[in-house]
Design a protein around this nucleic acid. Structure first.
Lengths: 148, 148
DNA sequence: ATCCCTGCAAACGCTTTGCACATGA
DNA sequence: TCATGTGCAAAGCGTTTGCAGGGAT
């Protein structure tokens, strides 16, 4: 599901400011990639994004995709996941609540959930270990109880 | 730190039964690898295990290491981790309490912790999503608060 | 005597890199 | 103008695979 125009504009604005602040050029490729990512929901990998963009309006190289994703990660507009496959998956993270994932191992399906106890664990661990927790990743690996 | 002899024997026994049960051969390589893994604490990767074994008593190929690690994962004697590097890390899991990891991102150091709230989250998620949770992985990415 | 397991090296697949050309500032 | 970004193809690198010889059963 795509975002409303006003929301897309907000994301473009965030990215523009990030590029300015880091003296990175505002190339058409970078904005095309950002728009493409924010035009759909869910998880994606570099290869499917590459296919999708080259079949459609915009032709980009894999190198540029990897470079731009790096910038999007730094700017906090995209999150990276390693669900256990050999490749990385990503998802947009602006206007998208922090959540964790349940991987249904027999189908590969990925569900999302949110649990406040994670936050309290993080807070406690920060005190106990005297560290600042910047981020976390939690994956639950499960099988469905449904009868076939 | 190595385990007591009686404990190593127990692990060998578990592996032997696993191999028998699955009609896999009890080769010297498999037991050497198991012993090597259980002779030290902490995390390791395939390459360092390869180096370590070839410098010492036993010469094994990478192929056999990968094969055997697979069996050890299946038998529950070893756990696999992806701390965010490009390679997998492993740790022995018998006589070793379930725990989660804090990765200190500036040093690469890995600390362990245990929090009962994880178990309750898993229990609740099982009910809410109607699934059986077989396993989980939780990594907290942190920076140290200590002054340099 | 089987046929599974091992070792070696080549293949794989995702990601990174080098380099020449293009382009934003 | 000119340093940075892009595209292409090659290189990297952990892991997997194919195959011939060896060893467990």
């Amino acid at each position: 599901m795509a975002l409303k125009n006003t929301k897309i504009d907000k994301v473009i604005d965030v990215f523009t400011k990030f590029l300015n602040h880091h003296n990175h050029r505002k190339t058409p490729e970078r904005f095309s990639i950002l728009s493409e990512i924010y035009s759909t929901d869910g998880h994606f990998d570099i290869d499917s994004l590459y296919e999708k963009m080259n079949k459609k309006n915009y032709r980009v190289s894999r190198a540029t995709l990897y470079n731009t994703i790096e910038l999007l990660l730094e700017s906090g507009l995209v999150r990276k996941h390693q669900f256990g496959d050999s490749f990385s998956q990503y998802e947009r993270s602006y206007f998208n609540n922090q959540h964790d994932h349940i991987i249904i191992t027999d189908t590969g399906e990925v569900k999302e959930f949110c649990d406040p106890r994670i936050q309290s664990i993080k807070k406690d661990i920060e005190e106990i270990f005297d560290v600042n927790i910047e981020d976390h990743s939690l994956y639950l690996y499960a099988t469905s109880r449904k009868k076939k």
